[in-house]
Design a protein around this nucleic acid. Sequence first.
DNA 1: GCGAGTTATGTTTTT
DNA 2: CATAACTCGC
Length: 712
Amino acid sequence: MHNELLQQLTPSQKKAVFHVEGPLLVIAGPGSGKTRVITHRIAALIDSGVRANNICAITFTNKAANEMRQRAIALGASAEGPRFGGTQPHISTFHSLCVRILRRYAEQAGINPNFSIYDESDQAGCIKQAVKDCELDTTNFPPVRMLEAISTLKNNLIDVDRLKAQADDFFSKTLAKVYARYQQILAECSALDFDDLLSKTAFLLQGNDEVRSELSNRFKFLLIDEYQDTNRAQYVIAKALVSAHNNICVTGDPDQSIYRWRGADIRNIIEFENDWPNATIVKLEENFRSIANILEVADNLIAANQKRKPKILIPTRPHGEDVRLRCFEDETEEAQGVAEQVKNLVDNGALLREIAVFYRINAMSRTLEEAFILNKIPYQIVRGVEFYSRKEIRDVLAYLKILVNASDETALLRIINAPARGVGKTTIEKVRAYGQSHNISLYEALKKAEHIDSLSKAPKAKIAVFVNMLEQFKKELAGEVAPIIERVFAESGLEKALQAAGADGENALENVNELISAASLYDQQAEQPSLLDYLQQTALFSDVDAYDTAADRVALMTLHTAKGLEFENVFIIGLEDGLLPHERSTNNDEELEEERRLFFVGITRAKQGLYISYARYRKIRGQTLRTIPSQFLYELGADAIDSVKEEQYFYDEADAQTIPDFAPGQLVRHKFFGLGTIKEFVDMGENSIVTVEFKTGQTKTLMLKYACLSKI
DNA sequence: GCGAGTTATGTTTTT
DNA sequence: CATAACTCGC
């Protein structure tokens, strides 16, 4: 590596970069140059004679992987030592890596290498079927809840047999049945869901010595970023991949763990030293990103978390402007306020692409969008999955899936009558019944439709045309993907149907064209383009991946999506009780602390300007409700915040009233919720809090000074 | 078989 | 408020 590249590194960064053999834990606070350390480390390994393709780096998103690959190659290209020389390090997400492993060792894993990957909406169909097949009542066993439970089981590597063995109550036993049926349905479709990708790989590596040893010798150096957000399955995969050498390097920050709900286990990073007793530990505590004011606020906030090792952020940048907190009347004014401040910043030379707005839930983007349109500010909502969940896109992809994987019934059912070709519910049921009684897949049954007695002439003919078309497509599946998509789109009749649909169809047509251009980009970039690979890749495409950092537009995204990114100016909106922390995440301290970390992640994205806001009233599900400021606001430290000093955002005179004593059992009336009974009263003077159980059945915790409760 | 219109229902975060 | 599920008439 060139000297100038090395001079950019601090002593601790260098320590992490040049630690070669053995386990390494890099605890890296926000803005500490963690990504740079990893890319330099990849280059340093290659410099020291390690073959590039013996290195495997795992990132949290595909976008991060792409960026890291480019940077690592750039460093390698400028290196004095051995070059990348045609081979490249494997850099991808856990999920992409698993797809590759499962495809390669499909036989050992007991799966079809042409497996389809099922997303949330595909899963929804399967779980509904499973619940139905188990003859369960969907009110007592909501499919979505069952799916959540199954997902948790898979993330913890509990398979059907193990659950059956340990289930001792009615719910677990029922869940085991649904789980079993759900897995059976997926297997019949040769499909894996997101969790399967991880768990099947983990089980394969755990159970097959040969595969484990082969892969561990292939990847002699493993690097894992964002290790604080790995779950049990990912942990097992990591352990297996380094079983032959222990050359594992993980980087992460316990304070930025925000995926507990997805099975992420913070213990993975906290107990790294126990897992690998001879581990070298490097701490990167200096922050090169944010001005000192922002770091003070972040420090104050995160200090409120009880379950953490104390750690402070060491600023390297001087103080600048204070963090600003603003209160608005309602969500519309808040959005307008953000838009005006954005214009202000731009007038003072800020770049739109260096501005971001974060919120807790996607639904909040709507009001912002309206304000940005009104104020003619270019913006992009960072939520690219939406593209792949559009109807027309899903239709096209379903055609492709069935061509690659004939057992994918979910895909088949989607397109069998799209565009309408007169094959309706009744016909499908008849074919299905035939298939079931002859023990063949739906597609096989369709092929044999002429032998199904219950079908009349017309449907038989229509089915024959459909099956013939698919069989024709199947003959030319090799090579580049874009031409295949074009052909399928045109000949399936989808294109015609959209053309006939007028204005709505026009937009859909554009989307499909965009899909085709994306596919030809894939064709150019892939070493060996194949339809199967393309489908399995696009299934893993996520929202940040579509984020165009070069476009000069304000970025709008959720706090979760903001992870790993940085901006000159950051707005965080909706700092209200129930939103941040979210009401569904306040059941226990762990959840509350994770919400705090989420806010912490948001704050530490900002380099220069940080603007926090909340609204006094907010419309939720069509109802305007009085809000309570988020408890997190009190934790930021009033000294470090502008406008707390100037204006009384925390305490509004207009709403002030003499605060009477409320004892538990007191009957009260609230202007929105009506009659209720006091359950709990916490006397904190003007900040007193009451918990009220309302006649509507809801229980709410309110700040007395805003709640306007009257005694009855 | 199909689509329009109606009614119920349920709301976090994502690879 | 937004969407899914459902009904009904053609």
